[in-house]
């Protein structure tokens, strides 16, 4: 699979979250919207997202990176993925 660019990655994550967990959210979700601290994404959604990221980008994210801060916005999620996505 050809490597995706940053915008494609962000949009992919945004589409996944919107479809799976944010359908009922009225507010517009941007790449900088706080997802966990604002309560949009709960613990289960975080795991779901983790599995989605690992399967989509064929990566493994170590437990030491498991902080809610690293998953709080789409920009931060992609920054985390970039550390392992080659």
């Amino acid at each position: 699979m050809e490597k995706m660019n940053q915008d494609e990655m962000k949009n992919l994550v945004l589409n996944y979250l919107t479809k799976e967990y944010l359908e009922d959210v009225d507010e517009e979700i941007t790449f900088d919207t706080p997802l966990i601290s604002s309560g949009y994404v709960d613990s289960f959604s975080m795991i779901s997202l983790l599995v989605f990221l690992e399967n989509t980008f064929k990566i493994k994210i170590p437990g030491s990176k498991a902080t809610p801060e690293a998953f709080d916005t789409i920009n931060r999620i992609i920054a985390l993925v970039n550390q392992y996505y080659v």
């Binding site: 613990s43 975080m46 983790l50 599995v51 170590p62 498991a66 809610p68």
Partner: peptide, 17 residues
Amino acid sequence: TWFRDYLFLPLSFAVSW
């Protein structure tokens, strides 16, 4: 949030690994 950050998430990542 304490349990989520210091136990649940690291454990989830470890299992996922």
